[in-house]
Amino acid sequence: MARLTGYLSRHGGLHPQEAAGLRKAASLLLDQHSRAETSRVINAQGYRTTHGNEWAPEVLVRVLGNPRMAGLDDDGEPIEGFGETVLSPDEFRRLLVLFAEQVEQQPPAREAFEYLLTEGLSECDLCDWNMVGTRVSSGGAPAYRCPPPRAGQPSCGRVRINADRLEDSVAEEVLAELLRPGAQERLARLLADLRDESVRLKAHVEGAEQRFAELREMRTVLVPSAYEAAEKATRQDMRDARNRLRYLEQLVDVPVEGVTDLVAWWNSAPRKWQRALVGVVIVKVRVLASGRGRHRDPSARLRIEWR
């Protein structure tokens, strides 16, 4: 189990810098600052999570709502020998009351929207950054946008398009491509290739333990910097392989082989199958800037990279 922010281990022992940031956040929240504003303040002052990430409002609330912030167990009783705590029990209980009140004041949740082209399937044409799903306001229509730039993220934040315009145009292009003569055979070959890649990646992931064992045996013959670089590269390779495998596993089981009326299939298919089919036939969709109204046809803003 990962240690809790503010402590040196899951059993206690205060982490002075992290504890200071959490205490600052608690004070701001109890002084009626919003969660978003509180997160901005402590991020600007250099406070980070245990993983070195900036604080998001929901993460901050989840951490401060952990009873171990005040040295308490899940029943609210003091943990014997826990030592110095980030918050006092009174501060912790006041925060819980505040969080409960905020939940009651929140407006009804808006209807969830399943985006078709997130997670790398759409990309900003200006900066090559992945588009994300967003809404301009709580009642706004779903849209895609290039996220604003921030530290370590050189996105431009300048490209946006309504979800229905982007998704309908891509769906039309995908279905038109798959209705061409010979498309079913090409689709079958693509699925077979992706399944083969999935099998290879699975074997690669399963062999990770052996590769790490071999790397540890070389520790005594490598200079420390070389060993650290090799270990870092190996861990990154495994993260990439696992992410790619999870992605492929979503694609290879799409039930389209043998379908005779692809349009009818698309119109009734669950979102996950539509995403899978799109992912099988395209690499990504590049979204161009709006051109100040010149692109009245949304398809004119798209450049599709086909597999």
Rank of each mutant, 00 (worst) to 15 (best):
R307L: 04
S122F: 05
S39L: 01
V285E: 02
A44Y: 02
V132D: 00
S225Y: 12
R200F: 11
G207D: 13
R275S: 00
R216K: 12
D237E: 15
V223Q: 14
A188F: 08
N162T: 13
L30S: 06
L28T: 05
E77P: 03
L121E: 07
P149E: 00
G139N: 14
R292E: 10
T134G: 00
R35I: 03
L302Y: 00
F113Q: 05
L190D: 11
E257T: 13
L222E: 04
T5H: 04
P57G: 11
G157L: 00
A2G: 09
C124A: 07
R10N: 15
D168I: 01
R94S: 09
N267R: 14
A300M: 03
D75G: 13
A20W: 01
R301Q: 05
S137N: 09
Q184C: 08
R271K: 12
V254M: 00
G65Y: 11
T234F: 08
P78K: 03
P270E: 06
P89D: 03
A20E: 12
Q153T: 06
G182K: 07
R292Y: 10
R160S: 10
E114V: 12
A151S: 09
C124M: 05
W129T: 08
V281N: 01
T50N: 09
S34R: 09
S268C: 09
V63F: 09
E257S: 14
R48W: 02
F113C: 04
K202V: 00
E305C: 00
G140A: 07
E206D: 15
E80P: 05
R244T: 11
L121D: 12
D90V: 14
P255C: 00
A188N: 09
P142T: 07
R48D: 06
R23N: 02
G140K: 10
E214F: 03
L4R: 08
D125L: 11
S198Q: 12
L175Y: 00
K272M: 07
M218W: 02
Y227H: 06
A100V: 01
L222A: 09
C124I: 02
R195Y: 08
R23F: 03
H295P: 01
L60W: 06
R189Q: 15
S299Q: 11
D31V: 07
E177H: 10
Y7R: 01
L4F: 08
S169W: 05
G120Y: 07
E101M: 06
I304W: 03
L277Y: 01
F82Y: 15
G12Y: 04
R189E: 15
G133S: 07
L245N: 05
A56K: 14
L166K: 02
R296Y: 07
L222G: 08
M1L: 13
G71A: 04
A264E: 15
P147E: 08
L191T: 05
L245A: 08
R135L: 04
E119Y: 14
W306E: 02
V252A: 00
F99E: 10
T85N: 05
R200V: 07
E206I: 08
A264I: 06
V136M: 13
V63K: 07
R135K: 12
F113H: 15
A26H: 01
C146Q: 06
L166C: 03
D297Q: 05
N130Q: 10
